[in-house]
Design a protein around this nucleic acid. Structure first.
Length: 858
RNA sequence: GCGGGCGUGAUGGAAUGGUAGACAUACCAGACUUAAAAUCUGUUGGGCCCUGUGCCCGUGGGGGUUCGAGUCCCCCCGCCCGCACCA
C-alpha cells in the first residue's frame, strides 16, 4: 500500500498543467469569460503566508470557474517600484533593479510550487520600460485631456534626505529615516485631478453591489461630500486689497448665532497681515511648526490671535465680529475661513470661552425651548441634523424644523437675498503624484527655458531610468546625474532639462489590471482584448487597500476611458471585490528578569502542554498571545516555504481556507496544519483502498451514499459561490467521513470518490488530479466539468421531524417525506411525549411546517 | 467624537426565524504496542436525579415581537476596525 506523497505528486501535476497549457488564457467568443485577480505583490523577496491565503482564494474561484465552463483569465505580476529597493541600494550597495529582479525570481520560485492556475505568460513587472513606458503614454494622454495639473502644494520635506515624505513617514515631527526635523515646504508638483471626479466616484459607489459595504462606506467618508453655503463677510476697513472674507459653512442655519470669524494661518489675508505685523508673523510661524499629520494637528492646542480686524454681519451691518487667526483652521478645506457659532459647536464654544466671545443660541431642544444650554454654561448643543429643533433665530422665523430643513431654508434665504450661494464641497483632494526619487516611473516632461513645461513626444517613449546612478549621498540620483537630464526641448529643440521627479508607485498599480488583458502590446491596452476581458469579475485583496489603491484605480479606469484606452463599460473596473483577513499566529513571550524586557520565542522553542506553553530549554512558562499579526520582531512568522517542504502545497492551501471565514483573520496553528495534512492523507488512502476493492461484490447502502454525494455537491457548490470556503471544507470533511464508513459497491464508491476529488480540486488541485488518475478519470481534473447536484437525488424518502412542545424540542417522529399535513398532526399528537404533556387535554395550537418541524402549543 | 463590524463550548467556528454547538482543534478514555509515536474507536456546554432516561439552564446583559429568536426590534456592556480640528 502506498502513501500520500505530496513532494512527489505536486511537481508532477504542475508539470502536467504546464505541458497541457491548461491555464493559458485566450480570447474565445464562444465561452463566457471570467477575470479573477488577486492584488499583485510587492517583490520583497519572500512570499508570506498571507499571500498564500490571498492567492489560494483566487485560485479556488479561478479553478471553479474553469470547471463551470468559463474562459478564465488569472494573471500575476509584480508591483515592483518603490522605496525599499533604494533602501537596499543605500544599505548594501545593490542596484535597485538588480535587487528587484532577484527578488522577483526568488518569489516566483516560491510561488510556483503552490500550483496556482496562473497564466504565467502574462507576467510583468511594473519596473520594466515595457510597462512604465506605456504608463508614460497614459500620462501624456491624460495631460492632454486636462486630467493632470501642475500646482503648488505644501509637503513634508526632509532636509537631510532631501525628499518629500508621506504623512505616515513623519514620526513625532521627524523624518522616519533621517530623524531630522521635518519642514513644511511649498513645492510645485504634478497632480491627477481626481477631485473633479469626486461626485461621480461617490455616486457610482451605489452601483457596486458586490463590494463590501464597509469598503464603500470608507470611500464615501474619504470623498466626503458636504452641502453648504458660501458667502462673504465684508471687512469694516479693507486691508492690502482684501475687502471681504469668504467663508464656507455646512450650518448656515446658525449664521444668526455667529460670534467671530476665523481664518487659517495660511489664508492670504493672514499672510498679508504677517508681512506687516511681527506679532502675527510669530503666531503664524508657531502654527506652521510641526508636521501636517492628523495626529500632530490633534495634539496641538487650539490657539487664536485677534487680528484687530472687524467684519460686518451680512444681515445686520451694525453687527461687527472680530477676525481671529486660528491654528485649527485648514487652508485646503472650504475657503480656509469660517465663522464660529459657539452655541452649536463644541470647538467654537471652547474658543469663545477662551477669548471671552459671546455665545448666542439659534435653536434649542424642542421640549426645552426656553432653555439655551450653552449660554447657561453647559456644553454646546449639537443635535444630529435629522433631529427637529426649536429655532429661536432661524431663517423661517421662530418655529420647529429639522436641522436639514433649517439648512435648506437658510441657503434658500441667502441665495434669494444675494448674500451667498449653496455649494457642494468634497473632502477629497487632488492626488499628488510627484516623488523626488529614483526607483519609479519617470514623469515624461521636459522643462525648457523658452517653452516652459513641454510634454515628451510619444515616439521618444519610454523615458528610461539611467542605470548608472549612485546612492551614496542623499537626495534623488536623477537630479545629479551628469547627462540624463540634458535633452533637447521636444518643442523648440533648444537645450532643456528633463523632469527628475518620478511617479508615486500607486500610479503603477492603478491600471495593471487593464494591462493584464494585453500584457505585451505596444500600446497600453488593445481595444479587442480590453473589451473581451474587462471588467475584473472578482478582485481579491486586503482591506488595507480599501481607500487609496481602489479609489485611484477607479479614477484611472475613468481617465483611461476618457483617453480612449478602456471602453465605457470598464469605467468601474472591478465588478466584485472581496477583502480577505490576515493569517495570524500566537506569540510566545517571557519577561527577562534583569530589566523586565519582553523576550519573544519561536514556536519551535516552545512546548504546549497542560493548557500552557513552556520553554523547551528550561521549562519556564511563556505567556501566549493568540491571534497576533505576524511580525519578524515577535518571532511569530510562518514561512510558506517551510510549510510546503514539510506538508506540501495542498496542505497549506487547505488549512488557510479551512478554519475561519475568509473575510476574517485565521490563526495559523501547528496542530491545525498537521490535521489538514493527516486529512489529505486519509483521503488519498481512501482512494487507494477503493481502487483495490472487489469490483463485482455487491454493496449495501448505495442509495444513501449517492444521496450524500449529491447533497455534498450542492453544499460545496453553494459554499464556493458565496466565499464560504470554511463551510465548504467542513462539508467535505463530513462527506469524507461518510464515504470512509460506506459499505456501498465499488461502482458507487468510485463515483463518490471522483465527486469528492472534483469538489476538492479547487482547494487541493494536486491531490485531486492524483486521485482522478488513480480512479481512471478522463483527462485532467482541472478540465473536467463541475459535477451537478441532482435535486431528486438529495431528498430522503422519509424525514425526521422534531416535535416541540411550547417551542422546546421534546421528541421526534419519522414520517414519509410527502405525508399529508393532517396525518403528520395525527402522528404528532399520538407521540408519547406529547400525550404526557397534554395529560388528556387539547392543544391550544398545532403548527406543522412540512418537512421541517412540528410545534405543539399547550 | 462620528461611522461600521463583532460578541456562540477549553479553542477556531457552523446554523434560509424551525432539533444551537455542524466540521475541526484540544482534552480525556479505549484498541493496537514491551512502551511511545502513528493509526483507529468513543466521550466532551453547564447543572439536577446517576433511573431508563428524563428535567432545568444555556448563543455578552436586560427587555420586546413570534407558535418558535444565536438570527428580527429597542436599551445597555465589552472588544475590533475605519475616519477624525472638515467649518
Amino acid at each position: 500500500m502506498s502513501r500520500y506523497d505530496p513532494a512527489a505528486l505536486e511537481p508532477k501535476w504542475q508539470a502536467a498543467w504546464d505541458d497541457a497549457g491548461t491555464f493559458l488564457a485566450k480570447r474565445d467568443a464562444a465561452k463566457p469569460k471570467y477575470y479573477v485577480l488577486e492584488m499583485f505583490p510587492y517583490p520583497s523577496g519572500r512570499i508570506h503566508i498571507g499571500h498564500v491565503r490571498n492567492y489560494t482564494m483566487g485560485d479556488v474561484i479561478a479553478r471553479y470557474k474553469i470547471a463551470t465552463g468559463h474562459n478564465v483569465l488569472h494573471p500575476m505580476g509584480w508591483d515592483a517600484f518603490g522605496l525599499a529597493a533604494e533602501n537596499a541600494a543605500m544599505e548594501r550597495g545593490i542596484h535597485p533593479a538588480d535587487w528587484t529582479f532577484k527578488n522577483i525570481d526568488d518569489m516566483r520560485a516560491q510561488m510556483k510550487p503552490l500550483g496556482f492556475s496562473i497564466d504565467w505568460s502574462r507576467e510583468f513587472a511594473t519596473c520594466t520600460p515595457e510597462y512604465y513606458g506605456k504608463q508614460q503614454a497614459l500620462f501624456l494622454d491624460m495631460l492632454a485631456a486636462g486630467l493632470i495639473d501642475r500646482k503648488n502644494a505644501t509637503v513634508n520635506w526632509d532636509p537631510v534626505d532631501m525628499t518629500v515624505l508621506a504623512n505616515e513617514q513623519v514620526i513625532d515631527g521627524k523624518g522616519w529615516r533621517s530623524g531630522a526635523e521635518v519642514e513644511r515646504r511649498d513645492l510645485t508638483q504634478w497632480f491627477f485631478k481626481i477631485s473633479d471626479m469626486a461626485g461621480e466616484l461617490l455616486d457610482a459607489l451605489d452601483t457596486l453591489d458586490n463590494w463590501p459595504a464597509k469598503v464603500k462606506l470608507m470611500q464615501s467618508n474619504w470623498i466626503g461630500r458636504s452641502r453648504g453655503l458660501q458667502f462673504a463677510f465684508g471687512l469694516t476697513e479693507p486691508r492690502g486689497g482684501h475687502d471681504r472674507v469668504e467663508v464656507y459653512t455646512t450650518r448656515p442655519d446658525t449664521l444668526l448665532g455667529a460670534s467671530f470669524v476665523g481664518i487659517s494661518p495660511d489664508h492670504p489675508l493672514a499672510k498679508e497681515l504677517e508681512a506687516h505685523n511681527p506679532e502675527v508673523a510669530a503666531f503664524c510661524a508657531a502654527c506652521r511648526k510641526g508636521g501636517t499629520t492628523e495626529e500632530a494637528l490633534e495634539k496641538a492646542e487650539k490657539m487664536g490671535l485677534d487680528t484687530g480686524l472687524r467684519v460686518r454681519h451680512p444681515f445686520d451691518t451694525a453687527w461687527e465680529l472680530p477676525v481671529y487667526i486660528a491654528n485649527f483652521i485648514l487652508m485646503d478645506y472650504g475657503t480656509g475661513a469660517i465663522f464660529g457659532c459657539p452655541a452649536h459647536d463644541q470647538r467654537d464654544l471652547d474658543f469663545a470661552r477662551k477669548y471671552d466671545l459671546p455665545v448666542v443660541s439659534t435653536y434649542a431642544p424642542v421640549d426645552d425651548a426656553d432653555h439655551t444650554l450653552p449660554e447657561d454654561g453647559g456644553a454646546a448643543y449639537v443635535p444630529p441634523k435629522t433631529e427637529s429643533v426649536h429655532y429661536i433665530r432661524g431663517f423661517a422665523g421662530k418655529g420647529t424644523q429639522t436641522g436639514t430643513d433649517g439648512v435648506d431654508t437658510a441657503i434658500a434665504f441667502c441665495e434669494s437675498s444675494g448674500v451667498g450661494q449653496g455649494v457642494t464641497k468634497f473632502r477629497l483632494r487632488d492626488w499628488g503624484l510627484s516623488r523626488q526619487r529614483y526607483w519609479g516611473c519617470p514623469i515624461p516632461v521636459v522643462h525648457c527655458e523658452a517653452c516652459g513645461v513641454v510634454p515628451e513626444k510619444k515616439e521618444n517613449l519610454p523615458v528610461e531610468l539611467p542605470k548608472d546612478v549612485s546612492f551614496d549621498i542623499p537626495g534623488n540620483p536623477l537630479d545629479r546625474h551628469p547627462t540624463w537630464r540634458d535633452v533637447p526641448c521636444p518643442s523648440c529643440g533648444a537645450p532643456a532639462k528633463r523632469e527628475t521627479d518620478t511617479m508615486d508607485t500607486f500610479v503603477d498599480s492603478s491600471w495593471y489590471y487593464a494591462r493584464f488583458t494585453a500584457p505585451h502590446a505596444d500600446t497600453p491596452t488593445v481595444a479587442e482584448d480590453a473589451a473581451y476581458w474587462m471588467n475584473v469579475d472578482q478582485y481579491i485583496g486586503g482591506v488595507e487597500h480599501a481607500i487609496l489603491h481602489l479609489l485611484y484605480s477607479r479614477f484611472f479606469a475613468r481617465a483611461m476611458n476618457i483617453t480612449g484606452h478602456l471602453p465605457d463599460s470598464a469605467r468601474e473596473p472591478f465588478d466584485a471585490l472581496f477583502t480577505q483577513g490576515m493569517v495570524t499566529h500566537a506569540i510566545y513571550k517571557t519577561t527577562r528578569e534583569q530589566d523586565g524586557r519582553p523576550v519573544y520565542h519561536y514556536p519551535e522553542e516552545v512546548e504546549l502542554r497542560d493548557g500552557g506553553a513552556f520553554l523547551k530549554a528550561d521549562g519556564q512558562q511563556a505567556e501566549v498571545i493568540p491571534s497576533a499579526k505576524m511580525s519578524k520582531s515577535k518571532n511569530n512568522v510562518v514561512d510558506p516555504v517551510a510549510i510546503i517542504a514539510q506538508y506540501g502545497a495542498d496542505t497549506a492551501r487547505w488549512f488557510v481556507l479551512s478554519d475561519s471565514p475568509p473575510e476574517r483573520d485565521v490563526e495559523w496553528t501547528a496542530s491545525g496544519a498537521e490535521a489538514a495534512y493527516k486529512h489529505l492523507g486519509r483521503v488519498w488512502s481512501l482512494s487507494d483502498r477503493i481502487v483495490a476493492m472487489d469490483r463485482t461484490a455487491p454493496g449495501a447502502g448505495d442509495e444513501d451514499l449517492l444521496r450524500a454525494v449529491h447533497r455534498t455537491i450542492h453544499d460545496v457548490t453553494m459554499g464556493v459561490e458565496s466565499f464560504g470556503f470554511n463551510a465548504a471544507i467542513a462539508k467535505l470533511y463530513a462527506f469524507t467521513n461518510v464515504l470512509s464508513k460506506s459499505k456501498a459497491s465499488y461502482t458507487t464508491q468510485r463515483q463518490a470518490m471522483m465527486a469528492l476529488a472534483q469538489l476538492m480540486s479547487p482547494m487541493t488541485p494536486h491531490l485531486a488530479e492524483d486521485i482522478w488518475a488513480q480512479q481512471s478519470g478522463e483527462g485532467l481534473i482541472a478540465n473536467a466539468p463541475w459535477p451537478v447536484a441532482d435535486a431528486a437525488m438529495m431528498v430522503e424518502d422519509t424525514v425526521t421531524l422534531p416535535i416541540q412542545i411550547n417551542g422546546k424540542r421534546r421528541s421526534e417522529i419519522t414520517v414519509p417525506r410527502d405525508l399529508q399535513k393532517e396525518e403528520v398532526e395525527k402522528l404528532a399528537l399520538a407521540d408519547d411525549a406529547v400525550q404526557r404533556a397534554l395529560a388528556g387535554g387539547q392543544p391550544k395550537k398545532l403548527i406543522v411546517v412540512p418537512g421541517r418541524i412540528v410545534n405543539v402549543v399547550i
